[in-house]
């Protein structure tokens, strides 16, 4: 019985390189104007999964993402780096999902795979920074969780031990399988894509799976299945090019601090 590993990944807008046209006039995000990347911590999660695969002969790594068809790019990238399989959950019915609806869709997709021993995912995605989807998938699959993992210490058929990075220190833990592990940015960088794999798979189409393919309750998907609603969005992008000169007077400093408090910066 071979070891089955799942990696949860996301293609995200590169929020560290936000340009002037990143926001629409109505305050929504103009996703088409943003470069997209493999969420950095998900790449670290993929590396940890591949390290398990290295130590466990016959283990397979399946990468799952949810997003538009374009997100197939990261599946292809993951395959080139050493994953065995992967697919995109792509369907208009998934759109507008918050973390609860996202974790439901992902957990349903994992359920379809039958027995899974280990699930890895990045701690959080750089476009939301919520760190919620991992623990929520674990709960839905009734699996224990280890968050903030930074190094794989040991793994065998009986369990896994990892080192966790906390705010003020470290903790080494051991869990029985199956377990879900979320990986932080302090973990090892992902290995590079393999040229042979790239050439061999260059023309492969990435598999797309829709809502019917995961046996989902449609009411728990997408916007409909999302309890959180965005009431209001305020654009706070300020141009860095023009520096506002503030006089060191009580009136000017008072106004500055009031502005910052109002914008929730202070």
């Amino acid at each position: 019985m071979s070891f089955r590993i799942v990696v949860l990944a996301k293609q995200v807008p590169d929020t560290h390189n936000v340009g002037a046209d990143a926001m629409n006039a109505d305050g929504t995000v103009n996703r088409s104007a943003l470069p997209v990347v493999f969420n950095p911590e998900d790449l670290k999660a993929l590396e940890m999964a591949l390290q398990v695969k290295d130590r466990m002969p016959g283990a397979t790594v399946t990468v799952i993402t949810m997003g538009p068809p374009r997100a197939g790019e990261i599946i292809k990238d993951a395959l080139n780096r050493g994953a065995d399989d992967g697919f995109v959950l792509s369907d208009a019915r998934f759109a507008g999902a918050d973390t609860l609806a996202t974790s439901y869709a992902l957990s349903q997709a994992i359920r379809q795979m039958g027995r899974v021993d280990l699930i890895f995912g990045g701690r959080q995605a750089i476009d939301g920074d919520t760190a919620q989807v991992g623990p929520q998938v674990a709960e839905k699959l009734d699996m224990p969780q280890i968050t903030y993992a930074e190094e794989l210490l040991d793994v065998d058929a009986g369990g896994i031990s990892v080192r966790r990075r906390l705010e003020r220190g470290i903790e080494c833990v051991k869990a029985k399988l199956p377990v879900l592990v979320t990986v932080t940015s302090a973990a090892a960088d992902c290995r590079y894509p393999n040229a042979h794999r790239m050439l061999r798979r260059a023309k492969d189409e990435v598999r797309m799976v829709n809502a019917d393919g995961i046996g989902a309750d449609m009411d728990r998907l997408g916007l409909k299945g999302s309890p959180t609603k965005v009431k209001q969005i305020v654009n706070v992008v300020l141009s860095h090019k023009e520096s506002v000169v503030i006089e060191p007077t009580e009136a000017a400093l008072g106004e500055l601090s009031a502005t910052l408090i109002k914008a929730h910066i202070l």
Binding site: P13, T15, H16, V18, A22, M23, G27, V29, I126, D127, G128, D129, P227, T228, K229, V230, K231, Q232, I233, V234, N235, V236, V237, A263, H264
Partner: peptide, 18 residues
């Protein structure tokens, strides 16, 4: 009202769970 910066600090969103 659950108010938080989002999107790399470029927007402030008010979230509700009605």
């Amino acid at each position: 009202y659950q108010i938080r910066p989002a999107f790399g600090g470029n927007i402030i969103a008010t979230i509700v769970c009605p």
